[in-house]
């Protein structure tokens, strides 16, 4: 039995593993050989951090179907927790301190996710949007006034540990975690709650439990992105994590398609790179952004991908279709 299982795993996942490795080798070799300049390197890291953020928000909003408007707040908790830890642990080897800092940041974000999720989901009705909105504001006020967060001036002198291998590793972890969770009985339970919570509960799904669990995971992954961001930027200012940033992340998820991981990843890439490339047109940025969203709402209200994913099956079918059409023409 277990032998068959092992064979099954290899067959199912070998292609994915190879692709993920190739992606890493490709980008890393471009960096090491100096093809990419330091600006490009920074953009890549930022893109990966945003991909982790969109994937995590997509979990709460796309898969669970709950509107969360305070995602930057969870990111802030992860960022500050990890940064304060690494700053106070100079005796540890930097890599180890960073790793522990990330874990602590994720745990702390998860704790806050739990504290918010339990009351929000036990109430009947959609309170999460309002509660998370308030939470995002409160967190940034707290950060500004607490003694150990550097106040409004911010926290500086954080060791710049986040490089490409770290963000790539974190991204792969996030992706694999979400995929393995969603393609399981637990994932089906999460989706069933989104689809019809009354039917889910009369099919035996503990709706409140799955809402809280998913929300906590979502918060933890936002904390992961925050911890990486802190050690990428080297300093943290509370204004970074305000309402606008939460909305930015939400826009990415909506743009890609709520409930599509492919969409979240693609949207994070496009909506991080395009504004950066349009830096010269900074005053038109918001205009272009708004225009794009309006066009989106008109032509693809469910986002670029809707709830679809780019899968091998999809590629295979499309390839066959195209080849078939090609043969007909010939």
């Amino acid at each position: 039995m277990d032998k068959a299982i092992r064979k099954n795993i290899l067959k199912k996942y070998s292609l994915n593993i190879v692709l993920l490795l190739l992606g890493f080798i490709l980008i890393q070799s471009l960096i090491v050989t100096g093809v990419l300049n330091s600006y490009a390197k920074q953009m890549i890291i930022l893109v990966f951090i945003n991909m982790i953020l969109t994937l995590s928000l997509n979990m709460a909003t796309g898969f669970l179907g709950e509107l969360c408007l305070g995602h930057a707040g969870f990111m802030a908790i992860g960022a500050y927790t990890a940064a304060i830890f690494t700053k106070n642990m100079p005796m540890l080897p930097p890599g180890l301190a960073f790793f522990i800092g990330i874990l602590l940041g994720m745990i702390m974000s998860g704790v806050f996710g739990f504290l918010i999720g339990v009351p929000a989901f036990r109430l009947e009705g959609d309170y999460l949007a309002i509660i998370t909105l308030a939470f995002g504001q409160i967190i940034s006020i707290f950060i500004r006034s607490l003694p150990f967060t550097g106040g409004a001036l911010g926290l500086s002198g954080i060791k710049r540990m986040t490089n490409f291998p770290w963000v790539y590793g974190a991204f792969v972890f996030t992706l694999v975690f979400i995929i393995c969770l969603m393609f399981s009985g637990h994932g089906r339970a999460i989706l069933s709650v989104r689809e019809d919570s009354i039917a889910a509960s009369s099919s035996g799904v503990n709706v409140v439990k799955y809402k809280v669990i998913t929300f906590v995971f979502s918060a933890m992954l936002a904390g992961l992105a925050g911890a990486l961001y802190a050690h990428f930027q080297g300093n943290l200012v509370p204004t970074k994590f305000d309402y606008n940033y939460s909305i930015d992340i939400m826009v990415m998820v909506v743009f890609g398609g709520m409930g599509s991981m492919t969409g979240s990843i693609l949207a994070a890439i496009i909506l991080t790179l395009v504004p950066a490339l349009l830096q010269g047109l900074a005053q038109y940025r918001m205009l272009l952004y708004a225009l794009m969203l309006i066009l989106m709402m008109i032509f693809r209200p469910d986002g670029v991908f809707g709830r679809k994913e780019l899968t091998y099956d999809w590629i295979r079918q499309t390839y066959r279709k195209i080849r078939g059409r090609w043969k007909e023409d010939a």
Binding site: C180, G185, L191, S192, D196, A199, G204, I213
Partner: peptide, 28 residues
């Protein structure tokens, strides 16, 4: 009341959910 955006077989599998034994860690 179906789980409309899930596949037919996944709809049925949700019915098994309450007998499910493996943990989230075992799934992940």
């Amino acid at each position: 009341r179906l789980f409309k955006d899930m596949s037919v077989i996944d709809n049925v599998k949700v019915g098994f959910h309450h007998k499910g034994r493996y943990s989230i860690a075992e799934a992940v």
